[in-house]
């Protein structure tokens, strides 16, 4: 099993955190992983992309050029996201911000209203975790079963109070696409 995922959005949406947590969990689940981020110099608002690979065998090229699954978190990222997806691949779009579908009739497209669900949970910033939960469910590549042990070391001590809502967000994400 090898799952190559291309994640894209704008800076501040948690693309990099999503990619890092995805591979953290995969590693704990016994898989080999690579994570290669690409982002602009801006703190917020620039492009944010990540090549993320999890596999049960050695990973060769760490650059995702033909993706098994694509995560698109905002409208501006649709163009690059739809190009990188393999024939018949998976595309997960954040339907809260993406109003025009990727032009890929061959792909399995999932619409996840990440921002709306996150707001209902009480913090729009967990939108990325809702997406990650959905990605876990539709790809089956990473179960995300160790988040409760990973998040305490991932968050700095002043953010520990956010662990619960992040785990809840992942569970909500899994439910949306169930």
């Amino acid at each position: 099993m090898t799952e190559k995922t291309f994640m894209t959005g704008f800076g501040g949406q948690g693309i990099i955190s999503m990619g890092q947590l995805w591979v953290y969990c995969a590693m704990k689940e016994g898989l080999k992983v690579t994570f290669f981020p690409f982002y602009g110099a801006e703190k917020r608002g620039g492009i944010a992309r990540a090549s993320v690979i999890v596999s049960d065998s050695e990973i060769t090229s760490p650059i995702v050029t033909v993706a098994d699954s694509v995560v698109i978190m905002n409208q501006d990222s649709v163009e690059i996201g739809e190009k990188v997806c393999k024939e018949g691949g998976i595309i997960c779009v954040n339907s809260s911000l993406v109003k025009k579908d990727p032009a890929r009739p061959d792909a399995r497209i999932y619409h996840i209203p990440c921002n709306e669900i996150a707001l209902k949970l009480g913090n729009v910033r967990v939108a990325n975790m809702i997406m990650m939960g959905a990605l876990s469910k539709v790809t089956g590549a990473v179960k995300l079963q160790d988040l409760d042990t990973i998040l305490p070391s991932y968050f700095s001590s002043n953010k520990r109070s956010l662990i619960e809502i992040n785990i809840a967000a992942v569970e909500e994400g899994k439910k949306v696409v169930a």
């Binding site: 992983v33 981020p37 990973i59």
Partner: peptide, 9 residues
């Protein structure tokens, strides 16, 4: 730069 910036186990 890729090896420097990339994360792996």
């Amino acid at each position: 730069g890729l090896i420097g910036q990339m994360m792996e186990g």
